[in-house]
Amino acid sequence: MKQKRIAAAAALILVSAVASAHPQGGGAHTHGFFDGFVHPFTGLDHLLAMLAVGMWSARQSNARWLPATFLGMVLVGVLTGVAGLAIPGLETGIALTVALMGVLIAVAARLPAALGASMVGVFALLHGNAHGHELPEAASAMGLLVASALLVYGGRMLGRVSPALALKLSGAAIAATGMMLVAAA
């Protein structure tokens, strides 16, 4: 019984974290560097996706450029959001990126370089688009990119130093959290 209450509390925390990261009522954020910098750390979906991209990229052969691809496409996504491009089902898509990255880590999937880059690029475009709508100023975009780089490269370092089993278990936890985010989206 106690475990069910803990699981329910954890689910509520996850749902509230997603809601606080993505205000829907006209953009409640101010738009400075700090706001952009803290944003990826305050939304569980963005935090896990960026860490997962780094973790997964560390185990891909000839994929040192995957983190840079992700960051470049985040910037493209931000620009599309600032320009007003609305992507239908954006929040669900972002949650699915978390789930899929978790699965890829959990099963130690190795993809062809072009497919991996394309997938990571699309994921980054979604995350960047959401941020572009919420944080449209240049200073906030710079903060977002700095924080994203720290998270992706931090995840890459974790992927390099973690034992394979620990990495797979982390991937499974990320995938499960991603599915909870999908259900909440």
Rank of each mutant, 00 (worst) to 15 (best):
M1V: 12
K2M: 07
K2V: 11
K4S: 12
A7N: 14
A9M: 05
I13F: 10
L14E: 09
V18R: 10
V18N: 14
A19W: 03
A21H: 15
P23M: 08
P23A: 08
G25D: 15
G26Y: 09
G32N: 02
D35G: 04
F37M: 11
V38I: 12
P40F: 10
P40T: 13
F41W: 12
H46N: 10
L47Y: 15
A49Q: 08
A49C: 07
L51F: 14
L51D: 13
A52F: 07
V53H: 12
G54M: 11
M55I: 15
M55F: 09
Q60R: 15
Q60A: 12
N62W: 09
A63G: 15
L66K: 05
L71N: 00
L75R: 06
V76Q: 08
G77P: 08
V78I: 07
V78D: 05
V78E: 08
T80E: 02
G84L: 13
G84R: 03
A86P: 04
I87M: 12
G93F: 04
I94V: 13
A95R: 06
A95D: 08
L96G: 10
L100C: 04
M101K: 03
A108K: 02
A109I: 01
A109K: 04
R110H: 14
R110C: 08
P112G: 06
P112E: 01
G116Q: 05
A117I: 02
S118W: 07
M119E: 04
G121R: 04
F123K: 03
A124D: 01
L125C: 11
G128P: 13
N129F: 00
A130N: 06
L135N: 04
A139D: 11
A139G: 13
M142W: 09
G143P: 08
L145S: 00
S148E: 06
A149I: 00
Y153C: 09
G155W: 01
L158D: 06
L158Q: 05
L158W: 02
L158R: 01
G159K: 07
G159L: 03
G159A: 07
S162C: 13
S162H: 04
P163H: 00
A164M: 11
A164F: 08
L165W: 02
L167H: 12
L167D: 09
K168F: 01
A172R: 15
A173T: 11
I174G: 13
I174E: 02
A176T: 15
A176V: 12
T177G: 10
M179N: 04
M179Y: 06
A183S: 14
A184G: 14
A184L: 15
